[in-house]
C-alpha cells in the first residue's frame, strides 16, 4: 500500500505530515517505510535520522557518437525529439548535448552505421536508512544541475514493497515530478493551507488527481489563520477532510529545529494517530 503526501504549493507542510505520520506508526510497531520523492530538495532526513544501510547510484544513458563511423546522414538528429544532437556536416562535427538528452534510445535505433554507443552518467542516488526494526526511509536525491528528477523518483518508488505500508513524500507542483510520484500511489493525501495561494494550488492538484483518477483526501494545515475559503471549496467539491493541524507557533519552532511534534507534544501525537485512522478508513471504503 502506497500513500503519497502531496500539495501543489510548496511549504504547506508535506514533510511535516509525512514524517510525523511515519513516526507515530513506526512507534506502534507496525512495519512502515517513508520514501522521500522530492529528489531536487529531499528533506525527510533532516527530521528522521537513521543509519545508512545502502546507497545506490542512479544512472542515465548518454549516446556517444563515433565520428569515424558516422556518415553524417542526419538520421539520429532527425529521430531525436529533444534537439540533443547538433551536427555540422561541412566541418564533420557531430555532438551530443548531454543536458538535453532524455535517454530514449531513438538515436541508437536511428543509426544504421553502428556509430552510436551509450555511456552511463550518474544522475543521483537512492539511500536507504534503517530507523528501527520495523521502519526505514528511502531518500532519492538528484545531482546538482540534473534537469529532471523523474527517472530517479520512479526507480526509488519501484523499490517499495507491496505488503509494506509506504508513504511517499511528494515534490511540489503539478508537473512531471509530482505526477511521477502520485501516479504510483494507491491514495493521495493533499496538504493545504487556508490562504488564497493554498486554495489556488489545491484546485490545480485536485484537477490533476481527478484526471489521473486517483482517490484522495485533504489535510488542512495552519488551520485558523484564514477565512473558511478552503472548507467551502472542499464541501462544494465533496472532498474528504482527513484532519486539521492548527496554526501553532510551537509547530513552526519544532519543525525549524528538525524535531518532530509527535515526539514533543502528546496533543500532536494523538492528532496524527487520528489522522492515520482517518486515512485507513478512507482506504477501506
Amino acid at each position: 500500500m502506497k500513500i503519497a503526501i502531496a500539495s501543489g504549493k510548496g511549504g504547506t507542510g508535506k514533510t511535516l505530515v509525512s514524517t510525523n505520520l511515519f513516526n507515530v506508526i513506526s512507534r506502534q510497531g507496525q512495519k512502515v517505510r517513508l520514501i522521500d520523492c522530492d529528489a531536487e530538495e529531499p528533506n525527510v532526513c533532516e527530521f528522521i535520522r537513521g543509519n545508512v544501510e545502502e546507497e545506490t547510484l542512479t544512472m542515465t544513458h548518454i549516446p556517444v557518437i563515433d565520428s569515424h563511423k558516422c556518415t553524417f546522414c542526419g538520421n539520429c538528429q532527425e529521430y531525436c525529439s529533444y534537439n540533443a544532437i547538433i551536427m555540422l556536416p561541412t566541418i564533420k562535427t557531430i555532438r551530443v548535448i548531454e543536458d538535453l538528452c532524455h535517454d530514449c534510445g531513438a538515436c541508437v535505433y536511428a543509426c544504421q552505421y553502428d556509430a552510436i554507443t551509450e555511456k552511463e552518467k550518474v544522475t543521483g542516488s537512492i539511500t536507504q536508512y534503517s530507523i528501527s526494526a520495523n521502519a526505514d526511509v528511502l531518500e532519492s536525491q538528484t545531482e546538482i544541475g540534473i534537469y529532471s528528477p523523474v527517472p530517479i523518483i520512479g526507480q526509488t518508488i519501484n523499490m517499495a514493497e507491496a505488503d509494506t505500508l509506504t508513504f511517499l513524500d511528494s515534490p511540489p507542483g503539478t508537473s512531471c515530478p509530482f505526477i511521477a510520484t502520485v501516479e504510483r500511489a494507491d491514495y493521495v493525501v493533499l496538504v493545504t493551507e487556508p490562504t488564497p495561494f493554498g486554495l489556488n494550488d489545491l484546485k490545480l492538484s485536485v484537477e490533476t488527481l481527478r484526471k489521473l483518477k486517483k482517490e484522495f483526501g485533504v489535510v488542512i494545515n495552519r488551520y485558523g489563520i484564514g477565512k473558511e475559503l478552503i472548507e467551502d471549496y472542499l464541501n462544494k467539491e465533496e472532498i474528504a477532510v482527513l484532519g486539521h493541524i492548527p496554526f501553532d507557533k510551537r509547530i513552526a519552532e519544532t519543525y525549524a529545529k528538525g524535531d518532530l511534534i509527535t515526539d514533543k507534544y502528546l496533543q500532536y501525537s494523538e492528532l496524527f494517530k487520528k489522522l492515520h485512522q482517518n486515512i485507513t478508513k478512507q482506504l477501506q471504503r
Binding site: E41, S148, P171, G173
Partner: peptide, 8 residues
C-alpha cells in the same frame, strides 16, 4: 521551487 529544469 526546487533546483531542476524550470529553475535552470
Amino acid at each position: 521551487p526546487g533546483i531542476g529544469c524550470p529553475v535552470i
